[in-house]
Amino acid sequence: METTAYIILSVCAAATPLLLAALGELVVERSGVLNLGVEGMMIVGAVVAFGTAQVTGNAYLGLLAAVFAGAAFSLLFAFLTLTLATNQVATGLALTILGLGVSGIIGEDFVGQPGVKLTSISIPYLSEIPMVGPLLFAQNPLVYLSWALVAGVAWFLFRSRAGLTLRSVGDNHVSAHVLGIPVIRVRYLAVLFGGGCAGAGGAYLSLVYVSQWTEGMTAGRGWIALALVVFASWRPLRVLAGAYLFGAVTIAQFHAQALGIPIPAQFLTSLPYIATIVVLVLIASNRRLTMVNTPASLGKPFVPDR
């Protein structure tokens, strides 16, 4: 019983950074923008969170700073792709490269230092419910945040007028422009939101998951988050499912290593990446599903007539 709970909690821990970053990217892509810089924004978030928490001694300030840093960093991407209409794929790559570099410089002094941990919050009474309590009501605040975000994003996209506007921009930016919807502004906001979420995902890594700073600590999670959005065919609830599935794969791999299963550690480490490829292939094979859900103007630059 204990072990099961422990495993579930650790799946949660592995899934949360993916979930946060992927939800942000989902909103970005729903607006028709493909930001491949998730990895870069995450790692900037991670280092800023760690540094701020260490300097101020307050993990919440660290989290807040990470959200702002992720958003600020995404602004670079937004300016290039939205204002200057550059190629989104290449610009996203540039953001990742820059993020890895910048975080390296910022984090130089933090390497090997102990971090400030963002501790879990037990909700009184509820967390004492047997079995369910510790799993649902004694979690890290960022886990709660990620759950709330799933519901929030789902509500926003499919129930609110603003969400409708955002989806319309992602479906057909020319029509949206003709109707007077401020395409570029909507996309700026979406990209900023995505940056903030990626920053929070990074903060989870450096404040909770390992609570220390190592260079390149995101280890491709930003890219897996991008894959999750495709996997989820741009639906928030499916992102939740996908993130936990990937969390489970990661944890399975750790446990297999710990149990001394005679498979080389490198093969197990590769597992999440291979799983990503397999999932992408399976999803792509279902053409109807992908084509109906893919935002039709995804990745296409928009320059209004003037």
Binding site: L36, V89, A219, G220, W223, L226, A227, V230, P264, Q266, F267, T269, S270, Y273, I274, T276, I277, L280, V281, A284, S285, R287, T290
Partner: peptide, 27 residues
């Protein structure tokens, strides 16, 4: 091949294979 045959996003698959290759060479 995955892109041509299934329409899989090549950006993500080609990148994932970097991590796999690093692990494989390391092993």
């Amino acid at each position: 091949f995955l892109k041509a045959r299934f329409g899989t996003n090549e950006i993500l698959t080609s990148l994932m294979l970097v991590y796999v290759a690093q692990q494989f060479v390391d092993w």
